[in-house]
């Protein structure tokens, strides 16, 4: 049931790599309205050229993250009442990523860093061998499980001040992924990964400010994962493995 009594004042950044500006829209407020609803309303009713990303609308795909009143959030899972400042909403593209157009960012650098951190699985068995038996209660599996639900939305990457200051830094998502794989006993490239996370822009550059943990929409703690990487790295260096 629509409630058209209140109007939201929504400022949306529009532009491209060459530059852009905020444009203000008046959007009808509705019950249970999400930020994605607001952006979609603007595109369908006022600004058909507005660019933004979304796919699943239910917090599974990680494609709709944007800066909502200065904080990285999923547009689809953020109720405007949780984000409003008065009746004002300010929407910008994700911080720390180059803009393609309007609210859509170029994610290639973000995904490239996953590869740089060896965030891929290197199997040690093929499909003909029996499935590995790993106790969910084992310490390494428990550590991996804490970070495994990442869906690559880049909210942590946008929240990270170290990435803002040092654009080469691998960032919380890639390092969190590397930590989950370092704790996967089935993986066969641990020395390689250990070297990857210790590259000049690696885990040791994290200042543990916990912006990533504060803004992760699925409540992961990449800071803790990076702390684990640092501990493991020092041990590996001491043992001459790196």
């Amino acid at each position: 049931m629509a409630e058209l009594s209140d109007e939201l004042e929504v400022a949306v950044w529009q532009g491209d790599r060459a530059g852009g500006a905020m444009r203000i829209y008046s959007v009808p407020q509705r019950p249970s309205q999400t930020v994605l609803d607001v952006v979609t309303w603007i595109q369908r009713n006022v600004e058909p050229g507005l660019s933004y990303r979304f796919a699943c609308r239910v917090g599974m795909c990680g494609s709709c993250a944007m800066m909502v009143n200065g904080q990285p959030r999923w547009a689809c899972r953020t109720h405007i009442k949780a984000a409003l400042a008065g009746n004002h909403l300010e929407l910008r593209p994700l911080r720390n990523l180059p803009v393609i157009k309007d609210l859509a960012c170029d994610m290639s650098e973000f995904f490239h860093k996953w590869q740089q951190a060896e965030g891929r699985f290197y199997p040690t068995a093929d499909r003909h061998e029996p499935v590995a038996k790993i106790s969910p209660a084992s310490p390494r599996r428990a550590a991996a499980n804490k970070g495994i639900e990442c869906i690559n939305c880049a909210a942590c990457y946008a929240a990270c001040d170290v990435v803002a200051w040092n654009p080469g830094y691998l960032g919380p998502a890639a390092l969190n992924r590397a930590w989950t794989l370092l704790n996967d006993v089935r993986d066969g490239a641990q020395k390689r990964r250990q070297r990857a996370v210790l590259q000049n822009n690696g885990c040791q550059n994290c200042h543990s400010m916990q912006g990533c943990a504060s803004f992760c929409p699925v409540a992961l703690n990449p800071t803790a994962a990076i702390a684990g990487l640092k501990r493991t790295a020092l041990r590996a260096i001491r043992q001459g493995q790196v």
Binding site: L198, N200, N201, G202, Q204, N205, A233, L234, I237, V242
Partner: peptide
């Protein structure tokens, strides 16, 4: 930018 050697030196 902090390479692995400087990281170890700072920790030690």
């Amino acid at each position: 930018m902090l390479g692995p050697r400087l990281f170890v030196a700072q920790r030690v």
